[in-house]
């Protein structure tokens, strides 16, 4: 019991919450960026623009099929070869954004495809251009259906930020490791805290997601 009291001293709790803040910071920026980039990539992939869609599609497939850890390594250790030397937090944001954009792109592509079959022709036959039909008819419906899937992808994003501990990003997992690194008796309290805090953040987002889903349908 004493271990638990000591483990949750004000200093340790504050340190853990600082980590939580970085986790949320990385997540929020990556969510916004990957939603925008993923949507664009998904639409490009759906649009069947000559060569462009095929190349984008191939790159997306590659990134979707390798572990996120590798992408984190490539970002942190590989980007400097191209003159970009991100610190750990920006590196984590770039890695998460690259990976999640591709996941979102695939969701968007299949989302558009599932509504577009009848809708696209219908809209085109009323004289709309491809872009008009996409923007005014297909996309609004597609996104309505996609929201729950996209939200659960964002829940995955938050969970996946924990992997960034491997390049010593000062996020929550890393900070918990620092705390139980100073005293192994803190390990059980720290894992309990990690479970509770990650659950709180992710579950909140899940609930919001299902509320939006219910509201829309």
């Amino acid at each position: 019991m004493q271990n638990w009291v000591n483990a949750f001293s004000w200093l340790n709790v504050r340190f853990l919450l600082m980590g939580l803040w970085v986790t949320i910071y990385i997540s929020v920026i990556s969510v916004i960026l990957s939603f925008i980039i993923g949507s664009i990539l998904g639409i490009i992939r759906y649009s069947k623009i000559k060569y462009v869609s095929a190349i984008v599609g191939f790159v997306i497939d590659i990134i979707r099929n390798i572990p996120l850890l590798l992408i984190i390594f490539f970002t942190y250790f590989g980007l400097p070869n191209f003159g970009l030397r991100p610190e750990t937090i920006p590196a984590a944001i770039i890695a998460m954004t690259v990976f999640e954009s591709c996941m979102i792109a695939e969701i968007v592509r299949s989302g558009i495809q599932s509504v577009s079959i009848g809708q696209m022709e219908g809209a085109r036959s009323t004289g709309m251009s491809f872009v008009q039909a996409l923007w005014h008819v297909v996309l609004p419906q597609a996104y309505k259906n996609m929201i729950p899937t996209i939200i659960s992808q964002f829940v995955s994003l938050i969970k996946d930020t924990s992997l960034a501990t491997i390049i010593v990003v000062p996020e929550m997992m890393q900070h918990a490791q620092v705390i139980y690194g100073q005293n192994a008796n803190y390990i059980l309290p720290m894992f309990a805290a990690l479970a509770v805090l990650y659950f709180a953040v992710c579950f909140t987002l899940s609930i919001v997601g299902s509320m939006i889903g219910k509201h829309l349908s």
């Binding site: 491997i166 490791q177 620092v178 139980y180 690194g181 192994a184 390990i187």
Partner: peptide, 8 residues
């Protein structure tokens, strides 16, 4: 991965 994990 690091000495904290190794010790634990």
């Amino acid at each position: 991965q690091d000495y904290a994990q190794a010790m634990n």
